[in-house]
Design a binder for these strands. Sequence first.
DNA 1: GTGCTGTGCTGCATAATTTGCAGCGTGACC
DNA 2: GGTCACGCTGCAAATTATGCAGCACAGCAC
Lengths: 296, 296
Amino acid sequence: MRHLIIYEMIEAVHRYGSIRKAAEDCNITSSALNRRIQAFEAEFGSEIFERVPQGMRLNAAGELLLQFIRQQQHELSRVNSQVADLSGVRRGHVKIACSQALIPYFLPYEISKYRSEFPDVTFSVNVRDRIEAEQALLNFESDIALVFEPAHMVTFEIIHAVHQPVTAVMSADHPLAHRETLRLRECIEYDLVLPAKQFGVRMLLEAAASRLGRKLEPVLETESFDMVRHFPAYSQAIGFQIPVGLNRSARTDMAYVPISEKDVSGGELYLGHLKGRALPVAALKFANQVAAALSN
Amino acid sequence: MRHLIIYEMIEAVHRYGSIRKAAEDCNITSSALNRRIQAFEAEFGSEIFERVPQGMRLNAAGELLLQFIRQQQHELSRVNSQVADLSGVRRGHVKIACSQALIPYFLPYEISKYRSEFPDVTFSVNVRDRIEAEQALLNFESDIALVFEPAHMVTFEIIHAVHQPVTAVMSADHPLAHRETLRLRECIEYDLVLPAKQFGVRMLLEAAASRLGRKLEPVLETESFDMVRHFPAYSQAIGFQIPVGLNRSARTDMAYVPISEKDVSGGELYLGHLKGRALPVAALKFANQVAAALSN
DNA sequence: GTGCTGTGCTGCATAATTTGCAGCGTGACC
DNA sequence: GGTCACGCTGCAAATTATGCAGCACAGCAC
């Protein structure tokens, strides 16, 4: 869309904080870009950048405009996907922000399944914690989010929610491996592998431990859910994960035992999008498929 | 916004159904406009007009695009008004769709009051019946609507609602003029002046009459609420109006008596806007003022 | 049929706009 | 005090849009 290229230029200037650097990115000279920005500001009726000795910084009006630009680009891509839909071919791009837990099994499977039906739909997947995920929706960086226990859900419109008990991960020969459910106090006797503090699973475990009057002292704390899942294979340590991040049939050398809801109440995995914003056709169809998958 | 002029051109072509006529409107030659439309369609990835021997007609993709264009223009004007608000000066334009009843007293007063505080805000007021009003919101022709008993309110987000008993309008020397309330059967004994069938007041009266097993036989049926209000001055006829359309202090030669709620249940006057759409600053402030005025 | 009128479309020369180049002035940093 | 990066600007070249004239086609009146 050549007539909207000025928007991309504005975004570039904002990103680089410098006309000269942004100009390089736009394959244009700085003078040309400079004049386009100036012409735009004149038309817009107000400056959108603050000129500081270090370069360009968006002012309040610019922030407002940037919000508009992103929304507008999102709407345009939605219209495009609807138009593509009209001609029978289902094309489009789905942008997903999700928790790490969805990465190993759930999303790869669901995306493959969707693409087997609509091969012209492409995807982008960004791992975001529950705070960043909401930001991604607001920035129009993502169409839909799939997050465990989101922090504040004011702008988050829920498509589907599913309960996820916190589940202990251990090697198949662990003393507790044969149990149906576990109490938290039993787990604490072993070495613990916990996700970092910003994650929902950790938050639920901490809350439960403090109710027991105990403190969690992990031998390994990590931001990688893969580490939490795989470390217990090589020791008697116990990791924690939510069921959607586990695949019982994949590894017979591991055991997955849910923690009793009496101790740890579990949390909700939410599938949602930005409130008041219509989804592109492809994103909507994919969201429906995911919602159906989560229901089982 | 020169870079968005193509949108106005598309709207012009749609409006005139002809490139040549639209070109005249755009102060451009038909060949230039023709090429711009073609270039746009190429970029957009799909034709948006159907070429018929009579000229150009939007196709399905074009309808989608037009919806996008209107929404986008609305959002832009909203951003503009927010930006103007930043610099202290409150500027902007408020577009109102309303029932006829609001025209004689209510809106002129409220608009004047608002403009005495913010003289740089301009208004457009369009009289729309309750079906057209919702359409006006959908087309972004209006920011807010003020309608009596809207027909279907799926896309209508209510800001404020106020009950309006149906009120009889008669000359001050009418036999019923001194009464506190009137029964419908009393009114029917006199000549009736009724608004046309599409209006809410008429609908409520018809429903009430059929409950009484009576049929309304107006001596004068009109689309003009002014006629309904003024005709009774010169005869013993009775007209009907809602309180917001009446101004007790203005005319001492007229009497206004509410119909008993036992007969005619009255209706709601709704102030609202399009669901899921943020209002420009000026429209929002004005809506708040109107809501406050309606509360009294 | 036969003009006639309207439609969208197109080749080409021209007008308008945008761009690149080079250079200016300014403030931050060492 | 020198260097660097910044935004900005005059001017000529390159690119793009426009206007003119004319084409092919479809509907319509006679």
